[in-house]
């Protein structure tokens, strides 16, 4: 048996393709990106080495700082509005007397649909002249509220985040729901027998037991918010006047529209570091709490 399992030829055959493709396509490009980020380079020719100059420029760039601010706002919305709402839904659906499967299935549908479709759809919902949202407001007698939601700076930012929050509520709900369902029912039964109300049970037993899952959800929505690209690209592409721009959109336009390859790479390295930093920070935060 051991001889069979240490067959070197088979080992190479089984392992090398995966190892090669992950290293070449996923791992090495990070280092290349880091190298690019130290160049002044328009994509043609070789580009000149300028050290950390791009990063120095980056921290003084108000357009960049604004894009970071937008993504942090989005992260805050996801964590403090979307997640509590998903948690509420998860606990309610897990305890509902009928229709459990239907709700689970229905809430989850938007998650699997392409962001391009979601984006196009919401663009039409928000449309200033013929959109669904304005039609709804008209019917409610609130015509004076109807406006071009994505076309003006004051509404565009919030309106471009709402579809993403809408799309992923079901995702977080399902993960938390699976967590609730996997908890041993004995705890709940014991608490209910002792006369605890369902709300008390939720806060004292279900939610504390859910902590590992909550960590997953918080990490996912935070990292997802910091990296967000697709939906903003489809909906507004950062406009009007950069009011909905997030770092990944700024990176993309810097590289592929203005051909500032070095500067764009510096933004991409910033995104990686930001994600890494927050992941470590969250790990730390949740560990501290477990000790208490």
């Amino acid at each position: 048996m051991n001889k069979i399992l240490s067959n070197k030829k088979v080992l190479c055959l089984f392992l090398l393709p995966t190892l090669l493709i992950t290293t070449l396509i996923v791992v090495i490009p990070i280092f290349i990106s880091f190298y690019y980020s130290m160049l002044d380079w328009d994509g043609i020719g070789k580009g000149s080495f300028i050290g950390l100059h791009n990063y120095i420029e980056l921290v003084q760039d108000t357009r960049f700082l604004n894009s970071v601010k937008n993504s942090l706002l989005f992260a805050a919305l996801s964590i403090f509005i979307q997640l509590p709402f998903s948690l509420l839904l998860a606990i309610v659906v897990a305890n509902v007397s009928r229709g459990e499967k239907f709700y689970r299935t229905a809430y989850f549908i938007p998650v699997i649909i392409s962001t391009v479709v979601i984006g196009q759809l919401w663009q039409k919902i928000y449309n200033g002249d013929y959109g669904l949202l304005n039609a709804l407001l008209d019917n409610l007698g609130l015509t004076n509220l109807s406006q071009d939601w994505l076309g003006q700076e004051k509404t565009a930012l919030l309106c471009s985040f709402i579809p993403i929050l809408w799309q992923y509520v079901g995702y977080h709900m399902l993960i938390m729901y699976a967590g609730v369902k996997s908890q041993p029912p004995e705890y709940l039964e014991a608490a209910l027998m002792d006369g605890a109300s369902k709300v008390q049970v939720a806060f004292r037993i279900t939610i504390p037991l859910l902590k590992p899952i909550l960590k997953v959800c918080v990490t996912f929505s935070l990292i997802g918010a910091l990296k967000v690209f697709d939906l903003i690209y489809v909906l507004t592409n950062g406009g009007p006047f950069f009011s909905t721009e997030v770092p990944s959109i700024y990176m993309y336009t810097t590289i592929f529209d203005s051909y500032h390859y070095g500067y764009g790479s510096a933004i991409s390295i910033f995104i990686i570091l930001e994600c890494l930093l927050f992941t470590v920070f969250l790990g730390f935060l949740f560990k501290e709490k477990e000790v208490l």
């Binding site: 996923v26 990070i30 990106s33 990292i223 590289i255 390859y261 790479s265 994600c275």
Partner: peptide
């Protein structure tokens, strides 16, 4: 994140 690999 795939952003990191995009340009390379």
């Amino acid at each position: 994140p795939i952003h990191a690999a995009l340009l390379p």
